[in-house]
Structures are given as structure tokens and as C-alpha cells.
């Protein structure tokens, strides 16, 4: 395949069956989003947001708050499509992430680590307020291009890859963009598909990329009324499942993927206990490589 730029390689990720997690009669499949060029699901939202922003930039630098994967997506897509990018990140993001985004030429501004990702949101808003002629605020938390990327892309792919058999989608909430878009895209094809969100059980958690909504700034794009259900997953359950996926499936999945798989298995077991069949699809945002600290 030949692409005009690497941006053409975003999406169309593989769907892989997770037989080791399946109870009898229910299939579990995972969409492996680390196959995107930037290594995470956030390439989809990043690309859609940048594409829809280009006309509005008028010489300004695109700025957004991020704890990592969105930053990497903006940084490489910005380089590929020649859009200047600045990122506001909590200072405790991993050294690897800092180096990756700098390699693509993105400008990095650090926010107070004790204020977590909400602190980065507040700092980005403040910078844009102070210098509206300098910054174009992409705002992944409020930008409808974020869920749209998944409604147009991810959902269609899941539908095609399961031959329209998907019955449940189990997806983690970060900005909420993935689950909102996947939900809308699947429901447009089959009203009965169940949309199940996975969120960290605790406010202080270790499931990077996921947001504990009750203690966070709730993103404007996140509409809880569109969910059928929300599962609270403890950090340890997500981490243990990530280790199991590596051992049993050869999938070196990140912690948020572990939590999503844990949730998918929970849903699959309930379906099996009711004596029904189903096709549960979950989504693995990134690979565990991203969380290995340099020695």
C-alpha cells in the first residue's frame, strides 16, 4: 500500500479474538489500536481534529492539554501535515513521552503534576485566554471531531470486521470520544448494540489514559445518557489482566487495555450465565511498551 503521507495509515486496525478470556458461547474480540502509526487510538481523534482545524488556524499554533497519547498523535500528525503544535502536559508524564513529542518538533509546556490532567486543561485554557492570537485551542475534551473520528472510522470497522454480529462494545473512558463515537456508529447500524463504559474505580488510580469522571472535569463531548452501563474497574484488576494478556495471548497491552479486557470478560460472563450468546468487542488503546521507564 502506498500513502500520500503517513496520516493515510491511521485506522483499519486489526480485530483479534481473545479465546483465553471467553466463557462458553460468547466471543470476545479486541481492536488493537497500537497498530496506528503513532502507537495509540489517539491517532484517530488527533487526525480528525487537525483536519477539521486546518482552515481555522490562521497562522496560530494548535495547542491542547494531554497526558501523552494525544500529544504524540498531534505531534507526529502535525509534523506530517505541517501544522505547528504545542502541548500542555502534567510534568509527571513519562520521560519517554516527553522525548517522543519533542522529536516531532512539538512545543511542550508543563503543568503542575499534583493537579493531574485537569491542571493541564486549566493551564491550556488560561494560555489561550491570554493570547488568543497565538494559540488555536484544539480542545479534545470539547471538540466533536474527536467522537466523529470513531463514529466514521472505528465503529464502521468493528461492524465490518464482525460482519454485523457485534452485540456489546466495552470501551474505556478518557475524553469519552472513543465510546461516544463507537456507540453512535454502532447504534446507527443496530439499535440493540449495548454500549458499556469502563472507568477507574478510584480517583487516584494507575490506569493511564482513563478518567475517573466523578472526581474530574467532565468533558463536554461525554454524554453519560448515551451509555447503557458503566463498569468501575480497580487499578490492580487492570494491571493483572494486562499481564495475563501478554502471557496467554501474546498481547503486550497497556494498563487501560487490561481494564477494558477485564470489563469485556465481566460482560461476556454475564451473557453466558444467562444462557445467551453474544459478540463482545473491546478496544486496546495502546501497548505496554509506552509505560516502560528507561533504565
Amino acid at each position: 500500500m502506498v500513502f500520500d503521507s503517513l496520516a493515510g495509515a491511521v485506522g483499519n486496525t486489526p480485530l483479534v479474538r481473545l479465546r483465553s478470556l471467553e466463557p462458553g458461547g460468547v466471543e470476545i474480540h479486541a481492536k488493537l489500536e497500537w497498530f496506528n502509526p503513532g502507537g495509540s487510538v489517539k491517532d484517530r481523534a488527533g487526525l480528525q481534529i487537525i483536519r477539521e482545524s486546518v482552515e481555522k488556524l490562521r497562522g496560530r499554533t494548535l495547542i491542547d492539554s494531554t497526558s501523552g497519547n494525544t500529544g504524540i498523535a498531534y505531534a507526529w500528525i502535525g509534523a506530517a501535515l505541517r501544522v505547528p503544535v504545542a502541548l500542555v502536559m502534567p510534568e509527571n508524564v513519562s520521560e519517554a513521552r516527553k522525548r517522543i513529542v519533542r522529536a516531532f518538533g512539538a512545543q511542550v509546556i508543563y503543568s503542575d503534576p499534583l493537579e493531574t490532567s485537569d491542571g493541564a486543561i486549566r493551564l491550556a485554557r488560561q494560555l489561550v485566554r491570554e493570547q488568543p492570537d497565538r494559540w488555536f485551542y484544539a480542545d479534545q475534551y470539547s471538540n466533536e471531531a474527536n467522537p466523529r473520528a470513531h463514529e466514521l472510522g472505528t465503529a464502521r470497522e468493528i461492524w465490518d470486521q464482525t460482519g454485523g454480529r457485534v452485540t456489546h462494545a466495552v470501551v474505556g473512558i478518557g475524553t469519552g470520544g472513543t465510546i461516544m463515537g463507537v456507540g453512535r456508529g454502532l447504534r446507527a447500524r443496530n439499535r440493540r448494540v449495548q454500549i458499556v463504559a469502563v472507568e477507574p474505580a478510584e480517583a487516584l488510580h494507575g490506569l493511564e489514559g482513563l478518567k475517573h469522571m466523578p472526581s474530574s472535569i467532565v468533558p463536554a463531548i461525554y454524554k453519560e445518557s448515551e451509555l447503557d452501563r458503566k463498569l468501575s474497574i480497580p487499578t490492580d484488576a487492570g494491571w493483572d489482566m494486562a499481564e495475563r494478556l501478554a502471557r496467554d495471548e501474546g498481547l503486550f497491552a497497556g494498563h487501560s487495555a487490561g481494564a477494558a479486557a477485564f470489563g469485556a470478560q465481566l460482560v461476556a460472563r454475564e451473557i453466558a450465565e444467562r444462557g445467551e450468546t453474544g459478540v463482545v468487542v473491546t478496544l486496546f488503546p495502546d501497548r505496554a511498551d509506552r509505560y516502560i521507564a528507561p533504565a
Binding site: 497526558s67 494525544t70 503534576p113 489514559g209
Partner: peptide
């Protein structure tokens, strides 16, 4: 006390 991860997305 610093969360080991940056959280959010």
C-alpha cells in the same frame, strides 16, 4: 504525593 501517571487522556 504524586500520582505515578499523568491520568486523563
Amino acid at each position: 504525593i504524586v500520582p505515578a501517571i499523568a491520568g486523563g487522556c
